[in-house]
Design a protein around this nucleic acid. Structure first.
Lengths: 229, 229
DNA sequence: TGTCCTATGTATAAAGC
DNA sequence: TGCTTTATACATAGGAC
């Protein structure tokens, strides 16, 4: 999309690369948001800029929560109801000689040993994950606490983000205790009220802020930021 | 992009919604992949279809790893070096009356209480996260074990994916212990060898497999699937 | 659902400020 | 450096299979 066709290969010039990243990052975030709005679905997106800047986008829930949900699905469906992990390992190790697979299988074996050692510990963890509910009453382990805390942290960020402009919580921002959070201006992308249910943030560590926080937050309208979700 | 301009609003017709999702999902994955290739960066993407199907895409590393890396960045930089969480809470609670903020702040307060209760537990967890290294020797907690296991699981999936066609590990697939994993055919999107360093999978739970696994895997060329990463 | 088709809306590569 | 403009490549809505 542009004057010339672009070659799908790493751009060597760092400047151009960063520029391209910025542009396309916005495009992808926009598209992701559109998908989330049009289809009323959850989307989570994480991108590292060539400079190491992290951009995350997520509709409705926090990236972490979406992760957890996806993990729950796969973990519950695949690992917990799977009483025999061994066959997989066997099938993997038995086919060592299959051409290009060798490298992977060697790795799989090395990991497999550890997997077995971790099995017991994991069954406990999986138990927790299976019944993971971000409800205060159910928190009983470091793991759950951390997962829940991530959610809280995201809430905090959102709130921080929305309030930054209004309240100018300069103490935090200036001291960099909470890096600046930016909301992409997606108004042009479509329905505003829909967008308000999503948030996109970019944080740059140890770097001065370049953009202004925007957005008024708006979760109270749908109540999506609740522990019940 | 199409015959008519589309309105940025949830599509009510379930059929159309699912169709739109499928199309746009592919577009976003393609774009994400292009970004990863062109800028040589890490991108992670998670999407839930209206039907609950999960699609994840990630360049180079697993979604989980990218998450962990992003989390480490934010957690280390923001939470650990922040000795005083209280001021944030105060600034939030002090401005209760600010119009639309009320709802959020109420939530923030509720959560904030819990945050404090969890603080102690968290400091332990954060300590672990800070020094999180996906190396076998360092695993000493449920939390780390789980994180590492996720990584292993992803490796397993990739391997499984690559090998499915070659080895026809039918036992697992048929019994649905390991749901079918598909690699999107992105060859048309650009440089093939570049794409091989990324993987995109879609899994459908409790549903019959419709697509054929594709892809020959190829991590041995770059050795990116290693515990050192 | 997957795919192909075409007309058209969008994203964006390059160039200009 | 970034923002705007322009021309063009690309994604995709609508429709049929």
């Amino acid at each position: 999309m542009g004057r010339n066709k672009i070659v799908m290969k790493k751009i060597e010039d760092p400047i151009s690369r960063q520029q391209l990243y910025s542009k396309r990052k916005d495009g992808i975030v926009k598209k992701s948001n559109e998908l989330a709005v049009l289809c009323d679905t959850d989307v989570a997106l994480l991108m590292f800029s060539p400079a190491g800047q992290v951009t995350s986008y997520s509709s409705k829930e926090s990236v972490e929560d979406i992760m957890v949900r996806a993990m729950n699905k796969s973990v519950n469906q695949r690992l917990i109801p799977n009483p025999n992990e061994q066959p997989l390992m066997q099938s993997l190790t038995q086919s060592k000689s299959e051409g290009k697979m060798v490298g992977k299988i060697a790795i799989a074996e090395a990991h497999g040993k550890k997997l077995n050692e971790l099995k017991e510990t994991l069954s406990e963890a999986q138990q927790k994950i299976r019944y993971y509910k971000p409800q205060v009453e159910n928190i009983s382990s470091v793991q759950e606490a951390d997962a829940y805390a991530q959610f809280l942290r995201s809430n905090m960020e959102q709130i921080q983000q929305s309030k930054a402009k209004l309240l100018a919580v300069q103490g935090f921002l200036q001291r960099n205790e909470y890096p600046m959070v930016n909301t992409e201006d997606m108004a042009a992308a479509g329905n505003e009220s829909s967008y308000l249910n999503a948030y996109c943030m970019t944080w740059t560590l140890n770097l001065p802020v370049e953009e202004e926080p925007v957005g008024d937050g708006s979760f109270e309208e749908t109540g999506r930021i609740t522990v019940e979700k």
